[in-house]
Design a protein around this nucleic acid. Sequence first.
DNA 1: AGCACA
Length: 446
Amino acid sequence: MASVSSQPQFRYTQPPSKVLHLRNLPWECTEEELIELGKPFGKVVNTKCNVGANRNQAFIEFADLNQAINMISYYASSSEPAQVRGKTVYLQYSNRQEIVNNKTTADVAGNVLLVTIEGNDARQVSIDVLHLVFSAFGFVHKITTFEKTAGFQALVQFSDTETASSAKNALDGRSIPRYLLPEHMGPCTLRITYSAHTDLSVKFQSHRSRDYTNPYLPVAPSAIDGSGQLSLGLDGKKLEPESNVLLASIENMQYAVTLDVLQMVFSAFGPVQKIAMFDKNGGLQALIQYPDVQTAVVAKEALEGHCIYDGGFCKLHISYSRHTDLSIKVNNDRSRDYTIPNTAMVNPQPSILGQQPAQMIGPGAPNFNATQYPPNAEQAMMPQHSGGWGSAVPPVPQSIPMQMTSHPYMPPATMPQMVPGMMQMPAHTSPMQAGTRPPYGPNSMQ
DNA sequence: AGCACA
């Protein structure tokens, strides 16, 4: 009795419908082409293209059944088959009576992309990484991120539909390059559709939303840390004044970070005058004082986002302090004034490394007291450049996350220099793009 | 070349 539903769908004779099913369409047949095809026979009230696994099928819905019959009848007896772009198109009545209006915003191209980040660690993808990835295709105006039932999502606004389309075509279904993500993170795949938005409303610069067209937008209170420091980077537009004193906060502090470790790490860029460590919001922070702003700038640029220990442990986040001269009242295991050697004797040998450049101490350095440190402390970050390298490195916008956590330190030659290149100069204008473009680069889309 | 899952 239920034989109707079990019949093959391609019966020789289909019951008439004002919806026609089309197949063998050319690639990416447009709605306009379908309307052109059906227009001589009646009023096309709806279409749906890119149907089926091969996206080469479509539906045309006429206002009236007779119009659909007109079209089928005409081509049934015509010597010329129905064609789109010279390709023969096969028509029949659809087995449905109307097109379900599936024409959501996802089908309409626009300048704003809706990006869903898939993966167990999707939430850890920073807005800076997203900015970096999408900047390869053109200037990114704004980004907002949010969590919905669909997961972690972002809206990415480009200036025009063409740029957004090239980004969508290149990135949809692809994963964020591994080198942009901390090692411990699993793959993060991007699913991209068009958004109905044309201009996002970004009220604050924050870790959730950015307006790259307006550096003077107020910074959200949430983006200012407990010390009143701006922890937010704004794509090269510095909102926090540079200072000779750095505020370092240490994230994922699996291992103890001692005063000596900090002194060692920060001394690589110049003499460290004073260090003060303190607990803040359940984490460890430290103020590190250099004699001059330039040294601090270099140290900050080099160390921001890096981990002291391999495996993503003790990740440094560095901002400029408003202090210019720390007041160290007592030398102990939490604070020290290295400029007053006579009184810096709470620990007679405050640092094995002393004031020597850190690169003098390599892996397996004989004097390295490994017992105080995790087993892989030999691999502790050893910046190999002292203060001078700042001029040799292109200025890096603050928002660039150097999430090279799998490598406590990588010399510049092995660093993905494309990262700053992409940031500052979108790939289509960047002289640095040769050989440094990501595999999904926009070149093949133009 | 044979019916849409948002």
